[in-house]
């Protein structure tokens, strides 16, 4: 496969090209393309049913694409399943363990499939999460199951960590610990060999972690951007004018008015909109960036911008 960026000679960790996957007549994924470079933390956002899990399952060869292709570490997961899977770890939204095993035997079992297993990290995390190794997996809470799955995913120190809605349904403290663990324990290795691909709709919690993201809608890419660039491009301007008046707000994504007050969504043209507003001597003028979550919530409006 040809690498588009001549400066970047490294093989992308994930390459998805025109991926299509149908369930009967329903197109779950319909022409998705994206690239994840080594060392990135990539956010994969979308509503329920947007096709996030289907895409991730194609990366893992749990589903086969109907058209297009995926490559992981430059390899085709259908042909090189073991080579691909030995270099990644996956935490699904619903984790299941063998009910007759304890925490300790589950970890031994998971380790038996791996060439490498970091015992120090295992011990650190068991202590941190206060997980009792002698406990049966059936007696664990949902939060503890996710913690156990996370330990199982981090100890082999994989080059790619695939997280599918990892924190949904967990309490805020467990969620916070989960993210701190990804940052602290997982990212502590060689940064170019620590890539995270996380699908979530709890975006605000991952905001600081995300380098790039794709918003998926109905199986297609709605927007793919660098996180800092996105926060720079999409801004909300609030102004209170001395009286109601006509404004030239061309290029604004959205304008909401209530009497003398206007709220404008800027799409990379913040300076031009501010200049227009300043000409009318506003009593108050405020600008703030949209967070990634707000950008995601504004998807309907964004459709116009990217169309």
């Amino acid at each position: 496969m040809i690498n588009k960026d001549p400066m970047n000679t490294e093989t992308p960790v994930i390459e998805i090209q025109n991926l299509v996957r149908r369930y009967g007549r329903h197109d779950a994924v319909n022409g998705l393309s994206l690239t994840v470079q080594p060392g990135q933390c990539y956010g994969f956002f979308g509503r329920n049913g947007a096709g996030k899990t289907t895409t991730i399952k194609c990366l893992l060869n749990l589903l086969r694409p109907d058209a297009g292709g995926v490559r992981v570490f430059g390899l085709d997961p259908r042909k090189a399943e073991v080579a691909v899977k030995s270099r990644l770890a996956y935490v699904p939204d619903l984790v299941a363990f063998y009910p007759w095993m304890t925490v300790r035997t589950t970890l031994e079992y998971l380790a038996s499939f791996r060439r490498h297993w970091n015992r120090d990290i295992e011990n650190d995390l068991l202590t941190r999460f206060q997980l009792d190794p002698t406990k049966k997996t059936t007696s664990l809470s949902k939060g503890q199951r996710t913690q156990l799955a996370l330990i199982g995913a981090i100890c082999p120190e994989p080059e790619l960590l695939l997280l599918d809605e990892p924190t949904s349904g967990l309490d805020p403290i467990v969620r916070r610990e989960f993210i701190e663990t990804v940052i602290g324990a997982y990212q502590s290795g060689d940064p170019t060999r620590r890539t995270v691909f996380v699908s979530t709709h709890l975006i605000s919690e991952f905001e600081g972690l995300i380098d790039e993201f794709t918003i998926l809608e109905q199986g297609r890419e709605l927007l793919s951007m660098n996180a800092d660039a996105a926060r720079d491009r999409f801004k909300k301007i609030r102004a209170r004018l001395p009286q109601e008046m006509k404004l030239n707000l061309t290029g604004a994504l959205q304008v909401k008015r209530s009497g003398r007050e206007v709220e404008i969504l800027a799409n990379g043209n913040c300076a031009q909109l501010l200049a227009e507003l300043k000409m009318h001597s506003p009593e108050e003028l405020k600008t703030e960036s949209l967070t990634l979550e707000e950008i995601f919530v504004a998807s309907d409006v964004l459709k116009k911008a990217v169309a």
Binding site: I179, E180, I183, G184, S188, G208, L209, I210
Partner: peptide, 14 residues
């Protein structure tokens, strides 16, 4: 770098 990244919950690269 590691404790600060964990505390602020941002990417270590940042």
């Amino acid at each position: 770098i590691r404790p600060l990244a964990e505390e602020l919950r941002v990417n270590r690269n940042t």
